[in-house]
Design a protein around this nucleic acid. Sequence first.
DNA 1: CCGTTTCCATAACGAGCATTACGATAACGC
DNA 2: GCGTTATCGTAATGCTCGTTATGGAAACGG
Lengths: 218, 218
Amino acid sequence: MPSSVLNNDHYEKDRVALMGRHREFDVEKVLDAALCVFWRKGYEGASYSDLTEAAGVERPALYSAFGNKEALFRRALDRYYERYLDFIPKSLELPTARAVAAHILYSAAELHTRHSHHTGCLGINGVLAGSDEAEPVRQALIEARAGGEAQLRERLERAKAEGDLPETAKPEALAAFVMAVSHGMAVQAKAGFSRDMLEAVAEQALSAWPAGSSTTSG
Amino acid sequence: MPSSVLNNDHYEKDRVALMGRHREFDVEKVLDAALCVFWRKGYEGASYSDLTEAAGVERPALYSAFGNKEALFRRALDRYYERYLDFIPKSLELPTARAVAAHILYSAAELHTRHSHHTGCLGINGVLAGSDEAEPVRQALIEARAGGEAQLRERLERAKAEGDLPETAKPEALAAFVMAVSHGMAVQAKAGFSRDMLEAVAEQALSAWPAGSSTTSG
DNA sequence: CCGTTTCCATAACGAGCATTACGATAACGC
DNA sequence: GCGTTATCGTAATGCTCGTTATGGAAACGG
């Protein structure tokens, strides 16, 4: 849920200008290009030259449209959650906790290997480590990550209340576990793992899923 | 197994000089300081100023002792595997596959939260993403990571042959799963997770461990 | 005690970084 | 069509990066 931590100062510039010369490039397409560069190289690893080259737009155009590098990254991160990590909120609507976990893990396996030129997860690649100047960005990624995990935990608490998970189940630990496996797969995808291999990891992770009172096993 | 991919050009300089002025700093201590900086900031996130400040040594001294930043990082990575990731080869000597996996996961949970100022795993933090110039370092980390996983896979293949894992077990997938959970915990440690939380993740990961023919459950 | 060798510290190197003046250009309201 | 306004491309800003040239200081061999 990164939008809550975003600096919105430059969002207003997306409106169509009523006067003066019109913007000649498509902001959405530029954002997509930036997203790919950040996905591949992380926040600090992506230079403005990388970004302008990928976007096909000169440097001042990017600044006028998004503010600065950090704001551009936050826009890209928002877009990433909306357009690529949308399987998380969708999965939460599935009927059983196990189905939720399975959908998250298999979707992650697919996403992390979908594009050969930017594997893994933008949120993980972004800034696990970096210079001190990138600390605000790192915090934004941490908060976004925590938001997704919190949603999953709440869903699993509901499942426990519904008898879909046993009384002994610990929703917080289960949610952390699912996210840990997902993050681990993101790292492995960066190391070149195939989708099949990641799906085998997901399968193993699911093989221990606790059964609810009304669940039929098999 | 990073030593196989290391550039050894500067190792020889560690010998005590027989002539000329003696080195005034302790190479081991400088290496430890560099290791901590890289652990915290990653490869590209750590600047030479960071390194010299942490080591208490001037820039040319680091260059004369280690060559350049990449060589220094590789030395630090070697040291990391020797002094911090030694629980992996040690765990492989445990009697059962489950004990191996448990030891790896709980050791990882401890290591990733041991130092509050550099959490997670140096191998993961190092360079998941970064500029193109860091590609050789990224490859070195990928190879080192793969080496550890390969060792675990071989150990699990042995366990399968010994009946310690069922015939249906897939050692490659199991090894990837254990490493994925470990990597995921490293990411979560970077996000501020406590050791207790990571141990809960490890426990969940182990709850599905396949039983061998001679294993008594419970 | 001199010559050689090696290390130390200061300070500089060129390159790349994120960011921005600047003047020209284009689209609107009136 | 003229003034206003916003974007355009070019080129420069100051800063930090990794790396190294330079000269003095220290430890050895003979």
